[in-house]
Each structure stands twice: as structure tokens, then as C-alpha cells.
Design a protein around this nucleic acid. Sequence first.
DNA 1: AACGATACGGAATCACGAACCCGTTTGTGG
DNA 2: CCACAAACGGGTTCGTGATTCCGTATCGTT
Lengths: 182, 182
Amino acid sequence: MRADAARNRARVLAAAGDVFAEQGPNAQLLDIARRAGVGAGTVYRHFPTKEALYVQVVATRLADLLDRADALAAEREPADAFFAFWGLAVDEACRNAALCEAFASATGEEHRVPDEVETRYRRTLGGMLEAARAAGAVRSDITLADAFALLAASVTAEMRRAGDDRPGRLTGMVADALRPGV
Amino acid sequence: MRADAARNRARVLAAAGDVFAEQGPNAQLLDIARRAGVGAGTVYRHFPTKEALYVQVVATRLADLLDRADALAAEREPADAFFAFWGLAVDEACRNAALCEAFASATGEEHRVPDEVETRYRRTLGGMLEAARAAGAVRSDITLADAFALLAASVTAEMRRAGDDRPGRLTGMVADALRPGV
DNA sequence: AACGATACGGAATCACGAACCCGTTTGTGG
DNA sequence: CCACAAACGGGTTCGTGATTCCGTATCGTT
């Protein structure tokens, strides 16, 4: 691959990462091209459609997040790791409209990330959930689907947090719903 | 007003109610016109823009919901009324993409309902919350903003409920986060 | 340094959906 | 029953944004 092509591809990905993070999946392709310092045609030489570019960006962000999840799982006690990841994921999603959308639509219909990433996501969160449950930190009737749904709910709550300067408070309240009663 | 005009206006409102409920604010105006058995021009003679029609529909649905809230507040104990309304609102939102959007965007930026409706909404939910708090059924640190955010979160959770045939379960879990600890 | 092969920019094209217009139809007061 | 204002429908216009095209510029190889 020619050097300039590689450079432009990287620039487009970086710009798309920024723009989609700010504006979500409906960002305009021209905005991305402009921010990358490139013409629209160049974007299309590297990605077949805007959708493909978007999916690529989301998949990358998700993979980054899962890397961090793996690190947490390795370093901390199961319960701790699970809830730490929860907070991390919500925090990240709140700063990134693309990721936010990905959680909200979750195993949804549009903007599907590659199966490979989806599978890793399920495996990782599933593993942490299972471990936390085994450690008695999470109610035994909580399924992986419950966790996905409530994670999305946490993101919603946190994004709606109006005039509250205590980030993580609502997320914590929702996450606490997973813990066993007294 | 001519009789046919009144009839068509009602038809358009009914059709818009259905279509927006199914498809949310991005439904196509022609779909609505078609479902109402009317031309696009007729829709525009009664409502200046698609947005105005949408707002009208949402405001009506919200007002209906608030009527039911008032009834609950009158008939039941404060705590009971508050949580019953919570479940009702989530249930209604899940069946209605327009209402769902309205809760999600809440005191948001787009599709603003008339101040009159917004105010009534704040007053009603605020009153029920206050009463529930006074009855000791809701933690004293929960603000109205918290309630809005967590209500939106409940809707998200419930909509994501995948392969779980127990409607209201996740909503209940989120709502329980409002209750005082033991 | 010269020559393909690649890649580039951005103007032109296409698609879609909101909003407008106007010739035709319909309701209704006299 | 009539005349005419009000209302109708749907074809037309307009704007927006994704995608394509192609003449030009650049890279890397001989």
C-alpha cells in the first residue's frame, strides 16, 4: 500500500473517531473528510460506505474498552472488577456518542459490529458477571441480558443527569440494583 | 370550521398518533397522510410542519398519562401512587416510540412540548415524588431530576429486555433503587 | 529522470423526504 | 338549488447529504 494511502486511511479513521464521538452515527461524511483534511472521494476509496466506517470506529472503541475490561479482570477481585468495568463503560459511553449508541442499541438491529467483536463482548461481560455472581456480589437471578439492559439504562440515566455534578451517582444506584439484598 | 375539515383534522391526528407511536419522530409525513386517507397538502393545512404535528401528538399522549397520574394520586397511598405511575409510564413508553423519545430526551433540546404541558408534568411527578418521600417510601436525597433520569433509564432497560418474558422486572429493579435502604 | 499504477480532490449525480402550489372538488349559507 | 369560499390531493419544487466519476497529482519502481 502506498505510503500516502496508509497515512490518509489513518487520518480518516482518527477524524471519524472524533466526529462520530461528538455527533453520533448521523454525523456528515463531509465533516469527517474535512476534519481529516481529505476529499470525500478519499474516504470512499478506503471505506465502501459511511456505515462501514462507522462500524469500524465503533468496533475499535469497543475493543479498546474490552482490553481494559480484561486488565481489570486480571488485576482485581471479581466483584470489584465487574463493578469497576460497569462504571468505566458508562463513563466512556457518556463521552462518546457512537459508543453510547452502540450500548443503547446493544444487540440491536442497526450498525452491527462484526460478530467477532460482538462475541468477545458477550464473553467478556459474561465472564465477569459470572465471576461476580459466584463471589456473591451479584444476585443469582441476574442474566447476561439483564446486565446488558441495565448497562444501557445506566448510560441513559447518566446522560440525563441534569444539574447534578456528581457523575456516577445514578450509575451507582442502578448498578446497586444488581447486588443481593441484605 | 367546515365539517370535512374537522373530520380530516381528527383523522390526521389519529393517524399521526399511530404512526409516530410505531416509528418515532422520524416517521414520514406521507405515511401519516396515507394512513389518514388524505393528501400531504391536507396535513399541512392543519399543521404548519411535521414537527408541530409531532409535538401536538406527544403533548396529547403526555396529557393522557398525566390524567391517569392524577387519578392514581387521588385514589392511592402516596408511595403506591408514585410507583404505580412509574410502572404505568414505562409501560406506556415502551408501546409508543414517540412517548419513549419524549422521556429519553426529557427536558431535552428537540421536540419541545408546550410549556404548559411540561410544567404540568413537572408539577405532577414532583408532587407524587414529594408525597412518596414524605411517606418514607423514597430516599430523601432523590431529586426530581433524579426521578426523570431514572425514569428514562427504566424505559431503556425495559426496551432492551431481550428474551425475558417478565415485563416490569427491570423497571422494578431500577425503581427499587429509589427506596430507602433497610 | 521517466513511466505506469495508485491515489487524490471535489464537482456532479442521485435519492429521499419535507414543504408548497394550484387546478379541482365539496360543504354550506342564502 | 346556487354561488363561492374553504378545503382537498398530489404533482412539483427545494434542500440536504450520500455516493460516484474523472481529470489531475503523487508515489515508487526501473
